[in-house]
């Protein structure tokens, strides 16, 4: 059995660790609030945007470079992850999903390239040498213009024919307890359909367009990409903190368990030492009597 001193040093160490994990948990909790707020603020914009988009795309019939459906030879996957780790299996789940998707496309004989947002994903895929562009260290303070930059880059690549299909993989923020790795289709943009779109289509013919609906569509499509990219980044932002909160909570609990176990061992050792000392004293006293 380890000595008393060794055990008490260990206990102190584990306690320190639990202080850190607890602090990280609280930091993530407050950052999560900010990220969630950002997401909620964005929601009306995205909603209105999609409604208008649905309205318009049901009426517009022209050909747009971003909607061009080609024979798929190269697939680009935009992997959005967080910049920092210590958030459980959050990033690795996303990466695994991306890997799986890439393997599926490769099995179909298609080429795959990656665009990575966030350090974790780019670190992983850089090793495989398939990363076309990586955006690192922006997850902390990203703004709309970051998303615009990324979207423009992807759009240019698509229009140049370097990629024929673009998918986005990110962690969808369902709730604080659940973040789901999700794949969405980005390019070529599919006309938005569905009940709402169909209902709006009836009245969309009455709209006055200025400039023409085709020209508006040309402005709208890149914006649509911005919205999608920005949305996935917002989700990652919130999910990352939620995942870290859970991970750090688990770590703190584990620390407390270890401290409990170690204290038990410490007490046992202490008791054993006292018993030993008493035996010595009693033995000594007996010897003196004798």
């Amino acid at each position: 059995m380890a000595s008393l001193k060794e055990i008490s040093t260990k206990i102190a160490g584990v306690k320190k660790t639990s202080q850190i994990t607890k602090a990280m948990n609280m930091v993530s909790a407050s950052k999560l609030r900010g990220a969630q707020l950002k997401m909620e603020n964005f929601h009306p914009y995205a909603e209105k945007f999609n409604a208008t988009m649905a309205n318009l795309s049901s009426g517009a019939t022209g050909e747009y470079p971003l909607m061009e459906v080609r024979d798929v030879k190269t697939v680009e996957i935009l992997v959005v992850t967080s910049d920092r780790g210590l958030c459980g299996s959050f990033n690795s789940n996303i990466i695994r999903m991306a890997e799986k998707l890439a393997a599926k496309y490769e099995a179909e004989g298609k080429k795959v390239s990656f665009v990575c947002v966030g350090k974790k994903g780019s670190n992983y895929f850089r090793k495989r040498g398939l990363v076309r562009t990586a955006y690192r260290d922006i997850m902390g303070t990203f703004q709309m213009f970051n998303a615009r930059q990324i979207a423009q880059d992807i759009a240019a690549n698509f229009e140049a024919g370097e990629a024929d299909e673009v998918k986005v993989i990110y962690g969808h923020f369902r709730s604080v307890a659940r973040q789901i790795p999700t794949t969405i289709h980005l390019l070529p943009v599919k006309p938005i359909e569905g009940a709402e779109g169909a209902a709006a289509a009836g009245q969309s013919s009455d709209y006055i367009y200025e400039p023409s609906s085709d020209q508006i569509m040309e402005v709208l499509l890149p914006l649509y990409m911005n919205v999608m990219v920005f949305n996935s980044m917002l989700h990652i932002g919130a999910s990352e903190h939620a995942a870290r909160m859970t991970a750090m909570d688990n770590a703190t609990n584990a620390c407390n368990d270890i401290v409990k176990d170690l204290t038990m061992i410490f007490n046992k050792a202490r008791q054993a030492a006292i018993t030993g000392d008493l035996m010595d004293i009693v033995g000594g006293a007996e010897a003196l009597k004798g």
């Binding site: 309205n55 009455d206 709209y207 006055i208 367009y209 200025e210 400039p211 609906s213 508006i216 402005v219």
Partner: peptide, 19 residues
């Protein structure tokens, strides 16, 4: 400020979409 020039909108305007 529409992309085709400044425009004004009053109540009960016809459906309209502009950049």
């Amino acid at each position: 400020p529409g992309s085709g020039g400044v425009f004004g909108v009053l109540a009960n305007h016809a459906p309209f979409l502009s950049t």
